[in-house]
Structures are given as C-alpha cells and as structure tokens.
Design a protein around this nucleic acid. Structure first.
Length: 925
RNA sequence: GGGUGUUUAGCUCAGUUGGGAGAGCGACGGCCUUACAAGCCGUAGGUCGCAGGUUCGACCCCUGCAACACCCACCA
C-alpha cells in the first residue's frame, strides 16, 4: 500500500473494473430490489443536487446488493424538451441562424447530433460518483421503445376520453413561443405600479357625487386595449345605479358595459375593475359568466396585434404600456400612479413574463387519474418519508387542474394526432395506423399535429416504460413496483405525482413503495445554487479539485446576466481563496450522507468535506497499521481473544445493528456518524492504542497475540463491508489485502455479504472492564494535561480504595494502562502507610493518585479540583431540590426516585472526597 | 391569504417513547509518542427563538408570538 491515501490513484481504474466485470447488473436469486434514477437531462451536466441524490441511491443500492437482493438501479436520461431545444437554439444563434431557417427535420437532426456529442458527459460524471447503475439497461425517453410507450399512452388516454383538445386561456411563454403548464410558471413578487385610469361614463350617467367617469386600477395598462367591460360588486350602492350602463373605453373608443360580479372586492381601490377576458385568468371567468367578447390583443411574441388601434400595433408589451399611459395622461384620463408590489409570473426556463393567451392546446383530464393516485397514498400502499410530504401531495392532488401537455416546440414526442382537410382529428401511433383505425382511404390527406408533448408527460411513464412496457417483460414482473424513489421535494408534483397516476392507470400497480424525499443542496449561506446567482458548485470539482482562477472562469462564463460577473467573481474569491482541494469521491459521498438529515435542506460546508477526507486518510492509515502488525499472519493459527478483542467485537456487534436500523429508516446521517465514531474513536483511538502494548508485551502468549491480530483484521474487514455502500472506492482498495490475509474470497467487496450481528459476539462484561480502563486512563491524562506535564514526563501512580474487581483489573490491564497513560509504575497504597501529596482522580470508589513529587503545581491541582467540585455541587444541589419536593417523591415512578437517591449518595461521597483532598492540598501551600 | 418546515455551543447539525444537554468542525493549551501533523492528548463554549400552559418534572406535549426558508393561491 502507498504511504498515504490518494483517491485519484484508485477511483477511476476501480470503476472500470467493476463495470467490466458486470457487477452492477442484477444478480443472484434474492428478493428483487429496484431504484429508478430520476433521469437527468441527456445533454446536462452533473450538479450538486444530482450528486447528493445519487449518493443516497447508490448507498442504498450497494447496501441492498450486499444484503443479497437481486438489485437493479435503472439508468436512463431524459430528452428534456424545452431545455435541450433552448440549448441547441442558442448554439444556432451564435452561428447567426434560427431553427426556422433550418426547418424542422434538420433542426431535430441537429439536436440528435448534439445529444451524440454531449450525451456522454453526464454518464461519465455519474461514473465518477461511483454510481453502480446497470448501464446495460440505459434508457432514453426518445428511444424507439420508449417512444412507443409514450404514443401508446397518448392514444389510450385519448380513446378513453382522458385527453382532449381545447381552446383555452393558457400560460404562454412569449420568449419560447409555447404554452407551458401551471407548474412551469414561477410566481415571484416584484416591484411594479398601480395605475388609475378614468373611463368616461356614457349616456349622461354620473356617479353619486356627480363624477362623469369610473376610475379603474390596473398593474397592466397595456391590456386595457382588450377591455370589454368594467365590473363592480353587485351590492355596492355607490355604483348600483350604473350597472347595465356603459363607459367609453378610451384610446380604443369602444362602448363597453358596466357589469356586476361577486369577483370584485369593494374595499380594493375604487371598487371598479377593468375586465380583459382574453388576458387574465380571473377576467376570463368573469367574461364567461357575462358572455363578454374576448379580444386578444397580443401576438405569439406578446406584441400588440391588429385587434388594437393602429397606433399601437407592432409595439412590444413594454412599449405599448408606455404609450398607453402617456396617451391617457394626454387625455387627462390618468389618475394616481402608485408603487405596488405584485406577483409576476415567469417561465421557469426562459425567465420571460408569462402571458395568459387564448390558444388551442391538448389537455389531460386529470381528475379520474388523480383519484386512485390519492387513494394509493391514503391507504399506505405508497409512503412518503418524511411523512409530512404526503400532505403536500394531497393538497396538490385534491385541487389538481387539467394538465396542458402540448408544447409548440420541435424537440420531443410529436403528438400522434392527424387532421384531415376538414379538421377532423384522428389519434393513432402513426399515419398508417390512423388510416386503419379510422378506416380512412388513401384519398384523404392527413397532416400530423405539429406540437410535441411536454417532457414530463414522457417521464411520467418512467417506472414502467424503462422496463419494457407495453411489452410484458420479466423485468416488469420483477421490478415493478420499484422499492424506493429517492428525490428532492422540488419535483414531487412535476414527476412523482404524475408517475403515480400514470403507472396506476396503465399497469394497475403502484410505481414504488416508498418515496424518500431529501432536501435541496444550498450553498454555505443557505441560498439555492443557481447559474444566475453564480454560486453553483460542480461536484467534480470536489473530487478533482480546482484552482481559484478556473473556478472564477467557470462561474462567470455563459451567464444569462453577464453584468453580474464582477459580483460573482468577488464572492467566489472570498469564499474559495485557495480554490477547492481535491477531496476524492468517497469523501464527497460521505459528506452527503452525513448531511442528509430528515426533512432538511443541506448547506454544503467545505469544512465538513475536509473532515471526511481526513477520515478516509484515517481509515487508510489504520489499515496500514493492521498490515504492519500482521505480516506472516496465519489465519488458522491457534488464538485466544483478549479482553480488548472481546470488547471491540462487542462494540462492532452493536454497530451492525445501528447501521442497519439507520439505513432501513433512511437515516443516512446516523449511518455515517456511527461509522465515523466506531472507526475513529473505538477502533483507532482505543483499540489500536491498547493493542500496541499487548503486541509488544513479552509476557503475552502467542495465542493471545494471534487473537489480537485476528481481531485487528476481522474487525477492519467487517468495518470495510459496513462502510462500502457510502465509500466504495477506498473500502474496495483496502479490503483486498485484508481479505487476502484472512484467506477469504477476493473478487470484490461489492458482492460480499453485508455484516450481520451474529458474526461478532456481544460481551457486556468486556465492555464494563474496558470502560473502567478508559476511565482510569482518562483520569490520569486529565491530571497530566491540566498540570501541563510533558507527555514524555513519566509518572508513578498510586491506587487506593476500590474493591477486588479494581485490583484484578489493575493487574491485568497494567501494560495498557502504563502505555496509554504513560505511567512507569502502578502501586497500591499499603495499609497504614503515609499518603504522599498527590493529584487525585476518582473512578467509582477507586482513588487514582499521582504524587506531586515536585512535578505538579499545588495551585494548578487545586484549581482543577475546584472546577470539578463546583460541577458536582451544582449537580448535588439540583438533586437535593428534586428530592426535597414532596410531589416528586410521591408522584414520580419509584425507579426514577430511587435512581435520583443513588445518584445523590454517589455525588455526596465524591464531594466529600474532593473536599477532603482540597483541604490537604491547602495545608501544603 | 393558506400551508409546511426551521430556530439547540462561534459554525454545520444530532437529540428515538417527557426523567442528569451531544457530535463534527472551529477556538484555546500541550505534543513530530515507531499507522496517520489530513495526526495525538487535554480544555473551554449552550437561561435549547420569545411568552404562557399541562406535568412532580418540558429541548421534547399544548397555545400564542417572532424571525428565517420553502410551497400553494386569481385580488385588479
């Protein structure tokens, strides 16, 4: 083995070995266990969220595989319609071209080319993370087989009346030129204005105070060009007499009615609302109730169209706004203009302001699909961890709206609907099938719907389409439902809910039993990582390291808002003054597990990963120690387990139970913490250190030394198996030589059985004894430390008090005690002899005394004991108060009261001893 | 406007059924002790967000409030 841990030397070659040996494919005859990867975008790159998500999945997958399950981690990628199309369009734009110049077929060809070129990136990155996915079953949502599933689903839903086409107000992204679903709209509060406009009353009408106009307020002045009414509340006396009358819509010179509708809030503004049914979801409903005309004034790019007065045509919505306000002002019809905060809807991909626009779109009638999906969670077939997400799910599902699935885009599954010249619709997988299905002769010309399906429509089929559906495959039989879905809470609606609906509808099975929802990865300040913010981190940079300048360049290139670059650079130079060191994959994975506490977002903290990189090094060095002390080790030689061996094995016995419980309950943080604690504290700090003096002790029998060497190796070997799911590379590397020494099978640790409790025996007595030993050693170390004695300053120790057990232990453990506390001689105080001035430590009834002998300063020792005494007195006081409380004694359970009494007695004795000791010290001053 | 989560040591976070507040990192002091200075030994840090309530007893249960984060929602 190399002298120190170097992740790069081991990781990549090891992964290639695993993959070549086909260790990732399902094997064995155990129970099936399946996890589906949330398919990353095929042309994307790995971000921290992926790395976190995949670490948790791989940890579980490796654990289950070692537990003997026939385990499948299903790999696949998503065609990511809008995201990918945007990317390729941007590339075209750099070459000065548009997709329209290219034409649909050539453009799609270009996207496939891009996929060929960049599709391997994310796969390579996932491999670097150590993910044990079954690459042989890799699926892509645009594969032929997958496409067949998508078309089949569409057709069946259409035939069942669950997909329909309709003309509706939808969320329109004018930058992308497509409709998007409600979920793809992000509403954020932004600063805007509230403009008040005066609409002149017609036919001589007046308000109560003689005003000849109605004043309406709006945050969107330009939409007034499409107003078709003014509404007031039906019970509003101020305007009751005007209902049924008319106002003149300025600039447009249109006569529009004054209507009464409950929708209006009398308290807000003037109590009068302009109604624009074609450009506002609320107004649209009002318009429908009052049979108002819909006047669409926007083009697909959100410029003013020909339905508006000539003057405004062709203006962008921003310019139109300015013009409308200026013109009304010129007419004296502009009232107050106030600052106003409002929710602005923006497209999640384009960041463009979303326009409600009347268009023809395809919808999924979602109610009938939602019902069984709600039931599946209600009745516990599907469980969310943490459970509170079930409420989030229910809330959304119970109020779910029909799903707009058509996109005016080119990259994606083209909608399998065909139209004849008369506009009749025929739905089938392809044109030929449509002709057969609808009995159309060759004379009928058919044109396919140009739109594509939104990406989430196809990813909703992931649980069964990846396993071969609509064919009936053995994989469907074995791996549906899958076991655990691991995902962030940001895609519960987008993906999880829709998978549940679709899978239930088409297979009659639930897609998965458990949904484990983890938090999102935030930066050290708790902010969401994003390209725009420039605070994103590349997981590969933690593995390989990156220098500061490269990191700055990475974060500031290709920004959507280049003006932010200086700020991002400054922040980056401040947060990462030395760039990022190479920590290796294992350290990164361990960090993710350690931070994966339930129901909480994770702040990625550089200090944590550094600590866990150090932990890797610790493991590496511990194994070096084990090897150095087991040269010529013969696993079959006679051995006898010593006390510390029995103690360590007993600790391991408990560890195995704890890690199993942790993983079974998705407590990755506890899993990591227990491993860390056992490996570092128990194995390294105590066992190895205790073993040293024994291995070097001439009085110890060969069998006992063999017992120690065996334990050194066996416990390490088991620890490596326990740790392997989270740190696959270092454990595999170290495991081989260990297993070899133990004479075991040595293909790969990946396929070894996960440790079971029965491999290591519990031994309560050994634990008690070693705890005693640790207490004595710690006591002496405390004296040494507080008295500022050099470690190489040898000490003698005198023991007094205690019982027979103490005497036996002191004799038996003398070598360990001497070395770990750096003590030369241990003697018992002879009865009747004089007690020298000493520093004191108490272990139960046993007095551990270190004679001052000119080494220890009386004042320092006094201070040390004072500190201890003060703490003891505080404890005593608290207990006295408790026991002095009549209600406590009478009402608390007897065992609790007894416990307090015992504690009190013990404390009292210790206090007395220390007081005594302090008095003696005082006499020395 | 509705909902969810969070608030514990300087920082990041644990704390299972109510019964003596924990870890890692950082800080401080001492050590190159023959696996490891990416290390070893020791020490110091907390009215558990605030205010009430239930209880013999509350970080834990209940009520209210505050701050922060996120989700949902049509207030012009």
């Amino acid at each position: 083995m190399d002298s120190s841990f170097d992740p790069h030397a081991i990781e990549t070659p090891l992964y290639e070995e695993w993959e070549t040996a086909d260790y990732f494919a399902p094997s064995g005859n155990g129970p099936g266990y399946c996890i589906l990867i949330p398919p990353p975008n095929v042309t994307g790159t790995l971000h921290m969220g992926h790395a976190f998500n995949q670490t948790l999945m791989d940890t579980l997958v490796r654990y289950k595989r070692m537990k003997g399950c026939r385990t499948l981690w299903q790999m696949g990628t998503d065609h990511a319609g809008i995201a990918t199309q945007m990317l390729v369009e941007r590339q075209l734009a750099e070459a000065g071209k548009t997709r329209h110049e290219l034409g649909r077929d050539d453009f799609i060809e270009k996207v496939w080319e891009w996929r060929e070129q960049s599709g391997g990136t994310i796969a390579r990155q996932i491999r670097r993370m150590g993910g044990s996915l079954d690459w042989s079953r890799d699926r892509f949502t645009m594969d032929d087989g997958y496409a067949e599933a998508v078309l089949t689903v569409f057709e069946r839903l259409y035939d069942e009346g669950l997909i329909y086409k309709g003309s509706r107000l939808v969320n329109w992204d004018p930058a992308l030129g497509t409709a998007i679903s409600d979920l793809e709209v992000e509403n954020n509060e932004e600063q805007g204005h509230l403009w008040h406009f005066h609409y002149p009353l017609l036919d001589g009408l007046q308000t109560g105070d003689g005003t000849t106009h109605l004043t309406v307020a709006t945050t969107r002045p330009e939409t007034m060009l499409g107003d078709t009414a003014v509404a007031v509340h039906p019970d509003d006396e101020r305007y009751a007499h005007l209902v049924g009358g008319f106002v003149n819509l300025p600039l447009v010179d249109r006569r529009i009615p004054i209507i009464a509708d409950e929708y209006v809030d009398r308290e807000f503004g003037t109590g009068c609302v302009k109604i624009t049914p074609a450009h506002d979801f609320n107004d649209n409903e009002v318009g429908a109730r009052h049979d108002l005309p819909l006047i669409n004034i926007f083009t697909a790019e959100a410029s003013i169209n020909d339905n508006a007065p000539e003057k405004y045509r062709g203006l962008t919505r921003e310019d139109a706004r300015k013009a409308v306000v200026a013109d009304l002002d010129g007419l004296g019809l502009l009232g107050e203009v106030k600052d106003h905060k409002l929710m602005v809807p923006r497209g999640d991909r384009s960041d463009a302001i979303i326009e409600p626009l009347l268009t023809d779109q395809w919808f999924v009638k979602i109610g009938p699909l939602a019902e069984p999906a709600i039931a599946a969670v209600e009745n516990g077939d599907i469980q969310f961890v943490p459970k509170q997400y079930e409420n989030t799910y229910f809330a959304w599902m119970r109020d779910i709206q029909d799903w707009c699935i058509s996109r005016q885009q080119w990259w994606g599954h083209q909608i399998p609907a065909f139209y004849d010249d008369a506009g009749n619709v025929y739905v089938a997988a392809d044109e030929a099938a449509a002709r057969v299905k609808y009995n159309l002769d060759a004379g009928v010309t058919l044109t396919q719907d140009p739109d594509v399906l939104e990406t989430w429509f196809s990813s909703a089929l992931w649980p069964f389409a990846t396993l071969g559906w609509p064919e009936e495959t053995p994989e469907l039989e074995q791996f549906l439902p899958s076991n655990t879905l691991i995902t962030g809470h940001d895609i519960i609606f987008f993906w999880v809910a829709r998978m549940i609906m679709m899978t239930l509808h088409f297979t009659g099975k639930i897609p998965f039993n458990t949904v484990y929802v983890h938090g999102l990865v935030k930066d050290a300040e708790g902010h969401k990582m994003s390209k725009t913010r420039g605070n994103g981190l590349d997981p590969l940079d933690f593995i390989d390291g990156i220098d500061l300048d490269s990191l700055v360049t990475k974060r500031t290139t290709n920004l959507t808002q280049p003006q932010l670059a200086p700020r991002i650079e400054k922040a980056t130079r401040k947060d990462f003054p030395d760039g990022i060191p190479a920590y290796g994959t294992d350290a990164l994975r361990f960090t993710f597990c350690a931070l994966a506490t339930t129901g909480r977002d994770v702040r990625f903290d550089l200090n944590r990963i550094e600590g866990y990189r150090n932990f890797c090094n610790k493991l590496w060095n511990a194994s070096k120690f084990a090897f150095m002390n087991t040269e010529d080790f013969d696993p079959s030689a006679a051995r006898e387990l010593t006390l510390i061996d029995r103690w360590l094995r007993s600790k391991l016995h408990t560890l195995i139970k704890d890690v199993e419980y942790a993983l079974d309950t998705y407590r990755f943080d506890i899993f990591a913490a227990r491993i860390y604690d056992f490996a570092w504290r128990e194995y390294c700090d105590w066992y190895v250190e205790l073993a040293k003096p024994l291995l070097w002790d001439a009085n110890l029998s060969a069998a006992e030394k063999q017992g120690i060497r065996l334990t050194l190796l066996e416990v390490l070997e088991a620890l490596l198996r326990i740790t392997h799911p989270v740190m696959p590379f270092i454990t595999e590397t170290i495991w081989h030589p260990v297993a070899e020494k133990l004479g075991r099978n040595k293909d790969t640790i990946m396929l070894q059985a996960y440790p079971e409790q029965r491999e290591f025996q519990a031994d309560e007595q050994a634990e008690v004894q070693v705890e005693w030993l640790k207490a004595v050693i710690t006591g002496i170390r405390n004296i040494r430390g507080e008295a500022n004695l050099k470690p190489n300053q040898e000490l003698d120790v005198l023991l007094d008090g205690g019982d027979d057990a103490d005497r036996e232990r002191a004799t038996a453990m003398a070598p360990m005690l001497k070395r770990l506390a750096n003590v030369t001689a241990i003697n018992w105080l002879e009865a009747g002899s004089e007690v020298p001035a000493h520093a004191l430590s108490l272990v139960g009834d046993l007095k551990v005394m270190v004679p001052l002998a000119g080494l220890i300063d009386v004042a320092a020792e006094t201070a040390r004991l004072d500190k201890q005494l003060e703490q003891l007195r505080k404890d005593l006081e608290r207990i006295d108060k408790k026991l002095g409380n009549e209600s406590f004694v009478s009402k608390a359970p007897v065992e609790v009261v007894d416990k307090e009494r015992a504690k009190r007695a013990d404390l009292e004795e210790r206090v007395a001893t220390l007081e005594n000791q302090l008095a003696e010290l005082k006499a020395l001053e």
